[in-house]
Write a protein that binds this DNA or RNA. Structure first.
Lengths: 187, 187
DNA sequence: GTCTATAAACAGATAGAC
DNA sequence: GTCTATCTGTTTATAGAC
């Protein structure tokens, strides 16, 4: 891996664990095994490095969600595959957590990839819900866009419950509760 | 308001807006109109001040949730009152957001009031769901604890969607989608 | 490309006068 | 109780040698 790549990977890990305001260039350099001059040669500063890291993390999350939602099976099964895919609930979402970072929220540039990821996710989930309703697998009165927002929010909020208690239980309960609510009435 | 109270209120506002790692003692002093010596006379340092602020915010949130959930009406109406109560979705949850703060998450003392609030909230919501199921107002197959976790998670995750896009829409959609899912099949 | 040196501003206090 | 002075370490770079 090149020094530049190591810097991005180190930044991704630190943004996930400590957020943007909690991550210093020095910490990035140490984690990447690079010096000051090296970092400022490849990137103009912390914002540019963070942008590259956020874009990489958003891309990875999108590919992971796609592989669950594009799979075979009923709409309910695909949403379940998305909700139950392997997650480390206590670590939270590497992209969603950045919405609570004041500097990311205040920067249109840094927020853009976050916004795009959730926009895409909500649209993709809405499509799956729409297909499920059309196929008679989900309740006919469901609004696809609203339901998609509820699914995305349950995951993000599940991380909050997990980290509040220090165990993954809250995440699991929230997700299973949602799957129960989505289950067809005739099951 | 006493200097001590002003320091706590200033800390509450800054923790809400910038989190723990993003809040400096200097910023607290300026917002409170107090000097260094004054702050360190009333509190041993940033952690003790933050603890007082978090406890105050958690208490206020608990009273707000109680007033919605203890009201009259069906279980669905009381959950709706809780979900639809006036919120500034873009500001997020003053307590829930702290779960994403690395220093709060790492400190058992600072995390305790956060843990207790969500523990209480999930229990209270589970009671309301249980009453609704018993009264035939909610689907009989619902698990009260799981459903409660889903409700709490939808609110917390709704804030994430709102801040990702910069508008309150995501919060509103998530909450309304959940209310649709909770609506009795026969309605 | 990578290294070391330097630096202004901020973080998070402590000490002691008033 | 509140104030000012002081202090150590960190943050976020820039400059210039190698």
């Amino acid at each position: 891996m090149s020094t530049r790549e190591r810097l991005v990977q180190a930044t991704r890990a630190l943004l996930w664990e400590r957020g943007y305001v909690g991550t210093s260039p020095k910490a990035i350099q140490q984690q990447a095994g690079a010096g000051q001059g090296s970092m400022y040669h490849h990137f103009s500063g912390k914002p540019e490095l963070a942008l590259a890291a956020i874009e990489a993390s958003a891309g990875e999350l999108r590919r992971a969600a796609e592989s669950a939602l594009d799979g075979p099976g009923t709409a309910h099964a695909r949403v379940a595959a998305y909700l139950l895919r392997e997650r480390d609930a206590l670590r939270g979402c590497p992209v969603g957590r950045l919405t609570m970072d004041p500097d990311v929220f205040a920067s249109a540039e840094l927020r853009a990839p976050v916004d795009e990821l959730f926009d895409w996710l909500r649209g993709r989930l809405a499509s799956v819900v729409r297909e499920g309703v059309a196929a008679g697998e989900l309740a006919p009165e469901l609004d696809p866009e609203r339901t998609a927002a509820t699914i995305a929010a349950t995951v993000q909020g599940g991380y909050v419950l997990a980290r509040a208690s220090g165990t993954a239980d809250g995440f699991d309960a929230a997700v299973r509760g949602l799957l129960d609510l989505l289950a067809p009435p005739a099951n």
